[in-house]
């Protein structure tokens, strides 16, 4: 079974969201997602300063075998991105919820947080796949 921390929120496209303060969030992909992809060899994260709408395509995570587009789970401005992943994409495999984070956002539509899945809901969503 994959780890699904209780303090995070999730999307059906397998991103996780951590609320850092008020309207600042950190975003990554779940352990389930990295396991399914296998060894990651290329990660492209959004540039700092760009503005994203919810569900915008904003990067890519690629394993040896396949490429998966990355979608913004929320609307807002990108205020930081994990640029060391360009040289060490394997961090997403090793530490998907910590060192393998992808980018941080300042939200413009905080209400969108309410539509994300809780840990239990996400666990249920991926249950058939595990």
């Amino acid at each position: 079974m994959s780890k699904i921390p209780d303090n995070l929120k999730y999307t059906e496209s397998h991103e996780w969201v951590r609320i850092e303060e008020e309207d600042i969030v950190t975003i990554g992909i779940t352990e389930h997602a990295q396991k399914n992809l296998g060894d990651l060899v290329y990660v492209e994260v959004p540039e700092v300063g760009i503005t994203l709408k919810i569900k915008d395509e904003t990067g890519v995570v690629e394993s040896v075998k396949s490429a998966e587009d990355l979608y913004s789970p929320l609307s807002g401005e990108v205020i930081d991105s994990n640029t060391i992943l360009a040289d060490t994409p394997e961090l997403v495999n090793k530490s998907p919820y910590d060192e393998g984070w992808l980018f941080k956002m300042k939200l413009t539509e905080k209400a969108e947080l309410d539509n994300l899945l809780g840990a239990a809901e996400y666990a249920k969503f991926i249950a058939d796949d595990e």
């Binding site: 060899v41 394993s63 040896v64 075998k65």
Partner: peptide, 9 residues
């Protein structure tokens, strides 16, 4: 079998 843990290893 696609891989037994790590395709790269």
């Amino acid at each position: 079998p696609l891989h037994y843990g790590s395709q790269i290893n």
